[in-house]
Design a binder for these strands. Sequence first.
DNA 1: ACCTGAACACCGTTCAAGT
DNA 2: ACCTGAACACCGTTCAAGT
Lengths: 232, 232
Amino acid sequence: MPTRARRTQRRNQVLSRERILDTAIGLLDSGGEGALTVRAMTDRLATGSGAIYYHVGNRDELLDAATESVITAALSTRSAGARATPEDEIRAVALALFDAIAEHHWLATRLTLQIIRNPVGPVTVGIFERLGRQVGALGVPRPRWFDAASTLVHYILGAISQNARVEGDTSGIDPDADREEFFDQTSRAWRDLDAESYPFMHAIVGQIREHDDREQFLTGIAVVLDGLARLR
Amino acid sequence: MPTRARRTQRRNQVLSRERILDTAIGLLDSGGEGALTVRAMTDRLATGSGAIYYHVGNRDELLDAATESVITAALSTRSAGARATPEDEIRAVALALFDAIAEHHWLATRLTLQIIRNPVGPVTVGIFERLGRQVGALGVPRPRWFDAASTLVHYILGAISQNARVEGDTSGIDPDADREEFFDQTSRAWRDLDAESYPFMHAIVGQIREHDDREQFLTGIAVVLDGLARLR
DNA sequence: ACCTGAACACCGTTCAAGT
DNA sequence: ACCTGAACACCGTTCAAGT
């Protein structure tokens, strides 16, 4: 009875890489990078620290694996159908990443880090391949495909990193109220700046309160796409 | 003799905020964020840990102050003369930030963090004001100035963050050789990817070795400027 | 093979005490 | 006012020992 034997043999394996990754992501979501401690992990998983190291190597690899897990899931949204324009496909990927970071603020720092340090991994390659395929259809000549894809990736990463709220802001019950107050405070502070030294800040002080992050992101994408279409 | 009295009184103040900031930046430059420990600071400054806390509050504030110091210096390069185009001025600011991050890799993470957390501070305001002033001359209508400046900032921050090499790479004697080898490894790894699943990566595998980070950055800026000029 | 948990080296931060 | 340095709580990581 090999089935029964195997079952018995594995009865004590309560831990799995997946379970570890899930609790790590849970910890990160609730309290940012600072909340991901080995001791918090052992508490939630009811094990010793050695058990975790048996499965994941170290904290940094755990963070990378969590990043990979979230990003891979975000990118796995089905590609738009064949009829969709390249612009639609780019927007779909960009918004998927935008939403992933909105849900997991710790991703902002970690995503940038991983693309820098591991250009060969599925995160970097996945994002580049998915976006890059479209630039040809956009009218970009072949020898400039790398420049074009890089520009797109750089803009998207910069924008979504900037839209992630500060880590550890577990406080607010109503996140939207926090957001309103945050922008109110910011625009008040900008208004208090010296008008002669900061004419531009004064000119836009009303716009920060009215703007919508997501719409502004799409405007930025449109600007870049427009520029790319004219890249010769 | 008030002068003499003051001098005597201060003879024991060997520490100053400026000296602390300088050694912190030195530590960060040589070994990344991980190298900035209070103990390393007390060693270099030959003091106790309390002395540092007397001047700077805590480690996070020290990191923010170091960021502010470097960015303020980078932005203080004189504005281009009155004859310069808005495009020239934007390029000058963008390259100043690019160079600052090239020299201080730890800035990538910290700059993004500070802009998110402290939109009222001199770093955020300095960058926005300096870049934002130009968008009007670029042809962007007033109600869209905030969108335009944000797009510019997001692209620049994304691009320079992505160009910062990994922290703690103090190893190489010749940084250019490291760079070459890094791109060689990357392009080899990309070539090894499945050609059917990753047609785009295969298409650009030669371009990564030939490209120049700085030129690619300027191309990206040109793309965004081009798009902004058509923003209505 | 998988897990336990004590032990280690190293953190950031505080604070009574000195000058 | 400015600085010292021991003490504290808390890290990530290792490893002999168990099953």
